[in-house]
Amino acid sequence: MSTAPATTKKDWTSDQEVRWCPGCGDYSILTAMQLLMPELDVRREDTVFISGIGCAARFPYYMNTYGMHSIHGRAPAIATGLAMARPDLNVWVVGGDGDMLSIGGNHLLHALRRNINLTILLFNNQIYGLTKGQYSPTSEVGKVTKSTPMGSIDQPYNPISLALGAEATFVARTHDMDRAHMQEMFRRAHAHQGSAIVEVFQNCNVFNDGAFNTITKKDARDAMLINLTHGEPVRFGVDNERGVVLDNGVARIVDVAEVGADRLHVHDETAPDPSVAFALSRLAEDRESPTPVGVFRAVERTEYGRSVAAQLAAANQERGPGDMHGLLRSLPTWEVS
């Protein structure tokens, strides 16, 4: 049932001049989003983009919706308050790896575990862009940046593993080189009831150019991207010759010819236990190994806002609507005449 008026990309595009560096991966994500919105059956006025600080966080300015460009790391917290107060809205959170995994890491974890109705887009470019090129919590060990002249010694986060560990109910990965795939992931995340997180591999062509080239370039994709499809065996490769099996809970890449197609793991994004999804998330240790994209997990759990509303309704049912006169007299009182 369609309720929102028909719109085009132009309706979702604000009058603000886009200020990312020419060639930045953020442009293609923005275009994918502006093209997708007319298909989502939502009204512009019911849509809100909330961001923190960083290059990605400029995103709300460019969407002709309601939007808030807040402060570093806090977007999930601010969005949580908005989504709790206004369950009628579609609230999107946009931020980068520094914003949401470093300074705001705590808020991201808690937004995910609460299952609040937010669609969270994590633009992962493995670098700090806006502060001009320091290593980030997703930068690989050994990365030489302005703040790590001898190479980073920090173990990076795997955002998908992190989200699964935080009890997220919808976890997906996509990349900025494939509009159709991005849109499919955004659409699924938007439709999900509860917290949905989509990691988007995003190229920062100024400070970390080509970070994902080995896996996302057109000619590399077939060999290096493992497309997860619900209900299908996990298979990839130029000739679909490779696949994934589970050995004692550990995901391993195999040649299909060697193990036989029957042994391949059949992807089930709805599995209640997140450990298989977690095993899949561990597949890509670095950008030299095949990397899964798609929906890792999509399970149902009561959305937080519904529980909030249910408690409010129950309190009303039990005690009737609030009565100020009665509240003032709810402790022992006495009369003076």
Binding site: A77, H110, G322
Partner: peptide
């Protein structure tokens, strides 16, 4: 809650004020 009051015990002080602002 029957006065329409929503209370949210946030993960930290920053999220507490952030959610209120949201």
């Amino acid at each position: 809650k029957n006065f329409g009051v929503r209370t949210f015990q946030a993960e930290d002080e920053i999220a507490a004020v952030g959610s209120a602002l949201g």
